[in-house]
Computed example of a mutant assay.
Amino acid sequence: MSQIQVKTPLKSQNLSDILIEAIVSGDISAGSKISEPELARRYGVSRGPLREAILTLQGIGLVERLPHVGARVVELNKQQLLDIYAIREALEGMACRQAALAMSQSDIDQLEALLNHHQDYLQQNEGQRYFEQDGDFDFHYRIIQASANKHLIGLLCDELYHLLRMYRRQASNHISRPNRALNEHRAIWQALADRDADLAEILMRRHIGRARKLIEQQVDAQAFTSSKGEK
């Protein structure tokens, strides 16, 4: 006798995770209006859990609600991006300093293994982007978590993390420095392994500062290209 399979309804937290990945990947594009009926049909959910999930996305900055428009996916401009990177440069530098003092030897070893995994990934996937690593596979995420500072973790891994993931994924076609990024990550790892908190902070700030300058150059170049096309 065959059993009837009942589809388990998505909980709002699971739905939030699904929507986050859809936005970060570009499946739901930046600046697009959030249509509750369309999303409810797509994911087979009722409006209640969907609204809870959308509120969660508003809380982490991926969705904004505008007068006469409603909810839509955020679309970062140049100044917003630079502001986020300025915050990130300061806070991740601080997190790296604290991680140098708080990490166990096991944490250090696991972080080195992660970098070896990243190197293998780059060698086996020529042309792929290093920026696509996320969560526990993200070097920065692991260091922030290792800082053991709940406030830094909340700010960098909850409030800003997915905005940065979204932009990094979108920008990966224009910004590519995977080997240099990996080398910089290895230098940061060595400072952490040496328990050199001062150097770890300096190297992390310098690493993110370089990324910020690349973003600024990219945005300016795109604006210049667009202005030429309008003439």
Results as ranks from 00 to 15, higher is better:
60 I>S: 01
205 R>S: 04
23 I>T: 07
14 N>C: 06
31 G>D: 04
133 Q>L: 11
170 Q>M: 04
70 G>D: 02
208 I>T: 07
75 E>C: 08
186 R>E: 07
204 M>A: 07
231 K>W: 09
73 V>I: 11
102 A>Q: 15
4 I>S: 12
52 E>A: 13
201 E>D: 05
210 R>G: 05
161 Y>M: 03
7 K>I: 14
147 S>L: 05
9 P>G: 00
101 L>P: 00
151 H>Q: 12
1 M>F: 13
169 R>S: 01
184 E>R: 14
93 G>N: 04
143 I>P: 00
130 Y>N: 05
92 E>C: 14
96 C>Q: 06
36 E>P: 00
99 A>T: 05
145 Q>K: 15
200 A>S: 03
196 D>W: 03
6 V>C: 03
169 R>H: 09
124 Q>H: 10
62 L>H: 02
26 G>I: 09
90 A>Q: 12
226 S>D: 06
30 A>R: 15
45 V>N: 09
88 R>L: 05
15 L>K: 02
157 C>N: 15
53 A>M: 12
145 Q>V: 12
30 A>H: 13
19 L>I: 10
185 H>Q: 14
19 L>S: 03
32 S>P: 08
2 S>E: 06
57 L>D: 00
223 A>M: 10
82 L>I: 14
157 C>S: 12
64 E>Q: 14
192 L>T: 08
143 I>T: 02
157 C>D: 08
113 A>Q: 15
226 S>R: 08
145 Q>H: 13
58 Q>Y: 03
208 I>N: 02
124 Q>V: 01
2 S>V: 05
159 E>Y: 12
25 S>D: 09
216 E>V: 00
112 E>F: 13
38 E>N: 11
207 H>Q: 08
141 Y>L: 01
183 N>C: 00
19 L>Y: 06
227 S>H: 11
148 A>H: 15
7 K>V: 14
91 L>T: 05
187 A>I: 05
152 L>W: 08
33 K>I: 15
20 I>G: 00
72 R>A: 01
86 A>K: 13
57 L>H: 02
32 S>F: 12
55 L>T: 14
148 A>Y: 09
147 S>K: 06
228 K>C: 10
44 G>C: 06
15 L>W: 03
17 D>N: 10
199 L>H: 04
201 E>M: 11
